[in-house]
């Protein structure tokens, strides 16, 4: 074997090693959490509230809070984001406003999530007097997920072949009718995928809800959108760093982490499957 061949083989193995190392992080996270969190997981854990200073009981209020706040975020972000994306892909021509809009969206996607928290606090909680609540947190998360929804929706719209738009217009459809009846249905799988990913991102975020409505502990399930709420990620943070007997509640923290991660991974897996299923949607007609 020549020296060149030797370096090649070593080099390629090195690249493989990098890849395996990267994947091993996912492996470690999954293995550690699921192997240790599994035992504390039970139906009771999911269906009861914490008790005895959070050293016992379950996480029902946190699950409910996370679900609600994610739902509120989606309800606001989805129509708004899809409308923005439709404007960008279907109506906008290349001028200063469009460029400003695209630049805004790109940069919004890069804004740290805690900055959204600060913004939510200043705008929703204080300026609009909504108060620390599910609604304020949901709106904050909506802003956070907005750039994702816009970007993925725009891509989905872009993938709908122009031939369909032309066909609809040539049949006497107005622009809006062509969008409603042909373009949007065609882009739906892509929009759905993006929405699921945005959902999963919103469900796992902590920093934006920190000052806008999440509570250390609530005894009851939230009764209105103006209530404070418990959330899974914040609950995990509390159990793993802020509790007075950290070692005692470690199993609960593990189980909470498993539920949170499981939820997020399920959403992501379903998005990936959706994408694979509809990958060849336009292949035949393009």
């Amino acid at each position: 074997m020549t020296k060149q061949q030797f370096t090649k083989i070593v080099g390629i193995q090195l690249l493989l090693l990098c890849t395996l190392l990267t994947l091993s992080f996912l492996g470690i996270i999954l293995f550690d959490l699921f192997s240790k969190g599994y035992s504390a997981l039970s139906w009771d854990f999911l269906s009861t509230a914490p008790s005895k200073g959070m050293t016992q009981g379950g996480i029902l209020p946190a699950v409910a809070g996370t679900a609600l706040v994610t739902l509120v975020a989606t309800l606001f972000a989805l129509p708004f984001g899809v409308a923005c994306a439709i404007y960008l892909n279907e109506y906008a021509r290349d001028h200063w406003f469009t460029r400003l809009l695209r630049a805004s969206i790109r940069n919004l996607a890069g804004v740290p999530s805690i900055i959204y928290g600060l913004f939510g606090l200043a705008l929703f909680v204080e300026a609009l007097h909504i108060g620390a609540s599910i609604l304020a947190s949901g709106l904050t998360l909506a802003l956070l997920t907005l750039p994702y929804i816009i970007t993925t929706t725009e891509e989905a719209l872009h993938n709908v072949p122009n031939a369909y738009r032309e066909a609809a217009l040539a049949l006497g459809a107005t622009k809006w009718e062509s969008i409603k009846t042909v373009v949007l249905p065609g882009a739906m799988p892509g929009i759905l995928t993006g929405t699921i990913l945005a959902l999963s991102r919103a469900a796992g975020e902590t920093a934006p809800i920190l000052f806008t409505g999440v509570a250390f502990y609530t005894r009851y399930l939230p009764g209105s959108l103006l209530d404070e709420f418990m959330a899974l990620p914040y609950h995990l943070y509390i159990l793993s760093t802020q509790h007075q007997s950290l070692e005692q509640v470690r199993p609960l923290a593990y189980a909470t982490a498993v539920v949170l991660l499981g939820m997020v991974l399920l959403l992501n897996l379903s998005a990936i499957m959706l994408r694979i299923r509809y990958r060849n949607l336009w292949k035949t007609s393009k």
Binding site: Y164, A167, G172
Partner: peptide
């Protein structure tokens, strides 16, 4: 829109909508 109802068009590549045969004609 009125013009396009009076002047129909058939394109170079067949471009039926991804709908049923029936719905394509009914569109």
């Amino acid at each position: 829109v009125a013009i396009r109802r009076k002047v129909g068009m058939v394109f170079q590549r067949p471009n039926p909508f991804p709908k049923s045969i029936y719905e394509n004609v009914a569109y």
